[in-house]
Structure formats: C-alpha cells, structure tokens
Deep mutational scan, measured.
Amino acid sequence: LNLKQAKEEAIKELVDAGIAEKYIKLIANAKTVEGVWTLKDEILTFTV
C-alpha cells in the first residue's frame, strides 16, 4: 500500500464514521503510511 492509497482508505473510513473535516485534514497531511494508520486509529479512538 502506498501513501496515497493509505490516505484514501483512511479518509473513506473517517468519512463513513462521520468524523469532522479538521481531523480528515490531519490524515491528508500525514507523511508516512504508518503515520496515516496511527492518526486514523487515534482519531477513531478519541472521537467516536
């Protein structure tokens, strides 16, 4: 999975969960695949 694909998957998951745009922007700015997954997990843990 490359960075672009990771971001697309994570953003789709966050949108489906009804997460606010400000958190989705954090994913869009992530620099690594690991960073994308870590941010996604943290956002889902603390906002859902």
Rank of each mutant, 00 (worst) to 15 (best):
7 K>I: 10
5 Q>E: 09
41 D>Q: 13
30 A>M: 09
15 V>K: 14
46 F>V: 09
12 K>Q: 08
40 K>T: 06
17 A>T: 05
44 L>Y: 06
12 K>Y: 04
27 I>L: 07
29 N>S: 14
25 K>L: 14
12 K>F: 05
5 Q>Y: 08
3 L>Y: 02
20 A>Q: 10
38 T>H: 13
48 V>I: 11
20 A>R: 05
40 K>C: 06
39 L>Q: 04
7 K>C: 03
22 K>F: 12
7 K>N: 01
42 E>S: 11
37 W>S: 07
14 L>F: 04
37 W>L: 13
46 F>P: 06
17 A>P: 01
47 T>S: 14
46 F>D: 08
31 K>V: 13
11 I>A: 05
41 D>C: 09
42 E>I: 14
1 L>W: 09
30 A>G: 03
20 A>I: 07
6 A>Q: 04
39 L>K: 04
9 E>Q: 15
15 V>W: 08
4 K>P: 05
6 A>W: 04
24 I>G: 02
20 A>K: 07
48 V>G: 15
31 K>G: 08
42 E>M: 12
27 I>R: 00
19 I>R: 03
45 T>H: 14
14 L>D: 00
35 G>R: 14
48 V>K: 07
44 L>N: 03
8 E>H: 08
26 L>I: 07
15 V>I: 13
24 I>T: 06
33 V>E: 04
33 V>A: 06
11 I>E: 04
18 G>S: 04
2 N>W: 10
15 V>A: 07
31 K>N: 12
23 Y>D: 03
16 D>T: 10
41 D>K: 12
45 T>V: 08
39 L>H: 02
30 A>W: 01
8 E>Q: 09
38 T>W: 14
8 E>P: 00
31 K>R: 07
41 D>M: 15
21 E>A: 09
6 A>S: 05
45 T>F: 11
20 A>Y: 05
19 I>S: 04
36 V>Q: 01
29 N>W: 08
31 K>C: 07
24 I>Y: 10
27 I>N: 00
46 F>G: 15
16 D>R: 14
40 K>W: 06
1 L>E: 11
22 K>E: 12
24 I>R: 04
13 E>C: 09
28 A>T: 09
38 T>Q: 15
29 N>A: 12
26 L>D: 04
9 E>I: 15
15 V>N: 08
28 A>L: 14
42 E>V: 10
1 L>S: 12
31 K>M: 13
13 E>A: 12
33 V>M: 05
14 L>E: 00
29 N>T: 09
10 A>P: 01
28 A>E: 15
30 A>Q: 09
45 T>P: 04
22 K>T: 09
28 A>Q: 15
4 K>R: 11
38 T>G: 08
17 A>S: 06
16 D>E: 14
5 Q>W: 09
20 A>D: 14
26 L>Y: 06
14 L>S: 01
10 A>F: 02
20 A>S: 11
18 G>M: 06
46 F>N: 14
30 A>H: 02
21 E>N: 07
18 G>F: 04
14 L>R: 00
20 A>G: 08
1 L>P: 10
14 L>C: 04
35 G>C: 13
44 L>A: 06
31 K>A: 13
14 L>K: 00
20 A>M: 08
10 A>E: 00
48 V>T: 13
33 V>G: 01
34 E>Y: 07
16 D>I: 10
38 T>R: 15
47 T>Y: 14
35 G>P: 00
33 V>P: 06
5 Q>C: 06
48 V>Y: 06
1 L>D: 10
8 E>V: 09
48 V>P: 09
3 L>H: 02
15 V>S: 10
34 E>F: 06
41 D>F: 10
33 V>Y: 03
21 E>C: 06
6 A>P: 01
5 Q>T: 09
31 K>F: 06
45 T>I: 09
35 G>L: 10
40 K>Q: 04
17 A>N: 07
15 V>T: 12
32 T>L: 02
15 V>G: 05
26 L>A: 06
19 I>P: 00
44 L>Q: 03
15 V>M: 15
39 L>T: 05
29 N>M: 11
35 G>I: 10
9 E>D: 10
25 K>W: 10
25 K>D: 09
12 K>T: 05
47 T>W: 15
27 I>G: 00
21 E>M: 11
42 E>R: 15
44 L>T: 04
47 T>I: 12
14 L>H: 00
1 L>K: 12
10 A>N: 00
15 V>C: 07
13 E>S: 10
37 W>G: 06
46 F>Y: 13
17 A>V: 05
6 A>M: 04
19 I>G: 02
35 G>D: 15
2 N>G: 12
43 I>Y: 05
43 I>C: 03
37 W>D: 06
23 Y>G: 01
45 T>E: 11
45 T>K: 15
14 L>I: 03
31 K>T: 15
24 I>F: 09
5 Q>P: 02
21 E>V: 07
7 K>F: 03
14 L>M: 06
1 L>M: 12
16 D>Q: 14
25 K>T: 11
10 A>Q: 01
46 F>L: 15
4 K>I: 12
22 K>V: 11
37 W>A: 10
41 D>H: 13
48 V>E: 12
29 N>Y: 12
11 I>R: 07
15 V>D: 04
45 T>A: 15
4 K>W: 12
45 T>Q: 14
25 K>P: 05
40 K>V: 15
25 K>R: 11
44 L>D: 02
47 T>M: 15
22 K>R: 11
1 L>V: 11
14 L>N: 00
32 T>H: 04
13 E>M: 13
11 I>Y: 05
27 I>Q: 00
17 A>H: 10
24 I>D: 01
41 D>W: 13
47 T>K: 09
32 T>G: 02
1 L>G: 07
28 A>R: 13
37 W>E: 08
38 T>F: 12
38 T>L: 13
19 I>M: 05
7 K>T: 03
25 K>H: 11
2 N>T: 15
34 E>S: 07
4 K>T: 10
13 E>Q: 13
24 I>N: 02
10 A>S: 02
47 T>Q: 13
23 Y>S: 02
34 E>K: 09
26 L>M: 11
9 E>K: 14
43 I>P: 00
39 L>I: 11
29 N>P: 02
38 T>A: 15
45 T>R: 15
37 W>R: 12
24 I>V: 07
38 T>P: 01
20 A>E: 13
48 V>C: 12
8 E>S: 08
18 G>K: 05
30 A>T: 04
23 Y>I: 04
23 Y>F: 15
46 F>M: 15
38 T>V: 12
18 G>Y: 04
3 L>F: 03
40 K>G: 01
6 A>E: 04
47 T>C: 10
40 K>L: 14
22 K>S: 09
15 V>P: 00
37 W>K: 14
17 A>C: 05
36 V>I: 05
15 V>Q: 13
29 N>K: 08
2 N>D: 14
23 Y>W: 12
4 K>Y: 10
30 A>I: 06
19 I>W: 04
20 A>P: 15
36 V>E: 00
